[in-house]
Design a protein around this nucleic acid. Structure first.
Length: 567
RNA sequence: GUCGCAGUAGCUCAGCUGGAUAGAGCAACGGUCUUCUAAACCGUAGGUCAGGCGUUCGAAUCGCCUCUGCGACACCA
């Protein structure tokens, strides 16, 4: 593989030599920083830490250092106050970076840190017979992006949709359906009608408590494998999943497994047995619990006092199953931050069980979505339907296309890519832990720091490449030596670091923010430089444009956002 | 009450895990399309980094305290 030069290391080596190794190369390397402004150079060494051992002012040290440092490998080295600023050789740096990108193409930035280790990702997890809301969007889109980021870092992600497809609500649903339901309606619009029945049930059961008895009875039948109950359950599950898959298709997300809660039904007894054998299970207030006092946590309830299992029982079964099936190096749960406490408990229980993958269990929390500062809930009717938001965004994108580029061939396809891209990007661009107070107009923005902004930057790049017949060049001799392109090139060079950072922090926003920076730098370049001018550097400029296009597309791909060639 | 997360421009957020004059986008105001797609670019204005104390040569960043908001605190998921 083409090995790109590590410029930071180069600086560290030169500084270490110049200070006669008073500080180790490693220590210096860690302290090297990137100046905010490019007229202060490309890399800088702050001389503060030398002032104690040399007993001199850092300004003085910086001034002396520039005379000792071998400057031949740099364009310029200068002392500014307490800093030694290094200016890289633009020509060779640019040439090296761009040649590398064009060679690697969308593999640029790949690394093998993950050593092909399996990573299970518990994500999305909508409830059967309920609509997907904006809350599900977050888990889906964050999980999807993390999977792609991990893959680029050499891991093998396994996306598991942990469907909410079991529980007492199915007793209610079956009861309601048999009383008021209609097969044709459910076929036509499953979620809509199933929710309607469910809501009706909840309205009436206050005055008709016999409904609850009936529901309980149906759930019991379902658990015991009653044919009618199982048939209906399977059917509800199937039609719901079809509706979900429609949404997933729109979002461009797929899964490796759909092991919902029901999948673990026959695996719960073993969990209880194992906990008993390990003497971890104790009785408390009539329930079976795992004590977690030593971690300052409340006990984890494994079985209710009536003997029924709980959510954590299934999660333990799931962790056990994943442990055996995949031997994961990480087992991630992309679930809202309100469940942090719960996941602390889960992890500790798994550790007490000595599960190999317990150390790799990690909750990947994200902030709450609220409306007017209040939590969403199906019951209160404060809910935002994901499909509605996506459709509105797609419609708006369509309008924009009709206005700005009416001749565009595949308008509907592009409107979808832009509209959906705006929603996904909007969700991923800020740190996932931040809460989001939902305002529709905020979501439907296509200008400024948005997905469409990044898409548009690449569209411009593609347009130039087409007009300049870029495919006839082989870009063998790239040389760019001007100020306009410099910011863009430095960003391109940093992409592999960004990919690592995103992976280490499990943070898609790192990629999103990077893509904005690159798009912005490119737009600026585009505005100030005539790329298609026929002169010496034409080929090199096209090579740069091509590199930008490759990386913008790859960045968006890592976020799960499509990148149209025209818009 | 205890624990967790957060508090940076009118609004939404960055600030590279301690460094140079705190940065973007939106909104406001002004400028730029006979030339590569104006979903863009340029400019103006906007700050007690919630408050306090401490560590340090140096703090928006680390520690402690206070205030404010949100969330979680065993038979829901």
């Amino acid at each position: 593989m083409y090995k790109i030069m590590n410029y930071k290391l180069l600086v560290a080596t030169e500084v270490a030599k110049a200070v006669d190794n008073i500080l180790s190369e490693e220590d210096i390397y860690k302290k090297i920083e990137r100046p905010k402004s490019s007229d202060m150079g490309d890399l800088a060494f702050p001389a503060f830490m030398l002032s104690k051992s040399l007993k001199k002012a850092p300004q003085e040290i910086a001034g002396e250092l520039i005379n000792k440092i071998d400057t031949s490998k740099f364009e310029k080295v200068e002392a500014v106050g307490p800093y030694v600023n290094f200016f890289l050789d633009k020509n060779s740096f640019s040439s090296e970076v761009i040649t590398n990108v064009l060679k690697e193409e969308n593999n640029y930035g790949n690394n093998s840190d993950g050593e092909n280790g399996n990573v299970t990702i518990d994500m999305s997890s909508p409830n059967i017979a309920k609509p997907m809301s904006m809350g599900h969007l977050r888990s889906t889109v964050i999980g999807n992006s993390i999977a792609k980021i991990l893959e680029k870092n050499g891991y093998n992600p396994i996306k598991d949709n942990h469907l909410g497809d079991w529980g007492t609500q199915f007793g209610k649903l079956i009861t309601a359906y048999l009383k008021w339901g209609n097969e044709e309606d459910v076929r036509r619009d499953p979620i809509h009608y199933l929710v309607e029945y469910y809501v009706k049930f909840h309205k009436l059961d206050k005055e008709q408590p016999e409904l609850d008895d009936e529901a309980r009875d149906w759930f019991k039948k379902l658990e015991n494998g009653n044919e009618e109950a199982v048939r209906l359950w399977k059917w509800f599950r199937e039609v719901s999943l079809e509706a979900f898959n429609e949404t997933y298709k729109t979002l461009g997300v797929d899964f490796d497994t759909y092991n919902g809660e029901a999948f673990y039904n026959d695996k719960l007894q073993e969990v209880v047995d194992i906990l008993k054998d390990d003497n971890l299970l104790v009785e408390s207030r009539g329930a079976q619990v795992v004590n977690l006092d030593e971690y300052d946590l409340n006990p984890a309830l494994i079985l209710k006092s009536d003997g029924a299992s709980l959510y954590i029982t299934r999660d333990i079964a799931a962790a056990l199953y994943r442990d055996r099936t995949y031997k994961p190096v990480k087992n991630l749960y992309v679930v809202g931050s309100e469940q942090t406490y719960y996941f602390n408990q889960l992890k500790k229980v798994l550790e007490k069980m000595n599960l190999d993958s317990a150390k790799g269990v990690e909750h990947v929390p994200f902030g709450l979505i609220t409306v007017d500062g209040k939590k969403l809930s199906t019951r209160s009717g404060r809910i935002i339907l994901l499909n509605d938001v996506l459709n509105e965004s797609i419609d708006l994108a369509k309008k924009q296309i009709d206005e700005k580029n009416p001749e565009l061939p595949n308008k509907d396809e592009v409107a979808k890519e832009v509209g959906v891209g705006a929603i996904i990007f909007g969700d991923l661009k800020s740190e996932r832990i931040n809460n989001i107070d939902f305002v529709l107009e905020d979501q439907l923005k296509f200008e400024g720091e948005t997905g469409p902004y990044v898409q548009y930057a690449r569209v411009r790049a593609e347009s130039i490449l087409k007009k300049g017949h870029a495919d006839k060049y082989n870009f063998s001799d790239v040389s760019l030596d001007n100020k306009q392109s410099w910011a863009t090139i430095k960003l391109i060079q940093s992409f592999p670091d960004i990919v690592k950072e995103a992976s280490e922090n499990l943070e898609p926003s790192v990629i999103a923010k990077y893509s904005l920076r690159l798009a912005k730098a490119f737009n600026k370049y585009y505005a100030n430089e005539r790329i298609l001018d026929d002169n010496d550097e034409l080929e090199s400029r096209l090579a740069l444009v091509k590199s930008v296009s490759i990386i913008l597309k790859e960045s968006l791909r890592l976020l799960g956002v499509k990148s149209p060639d025209e818009m």
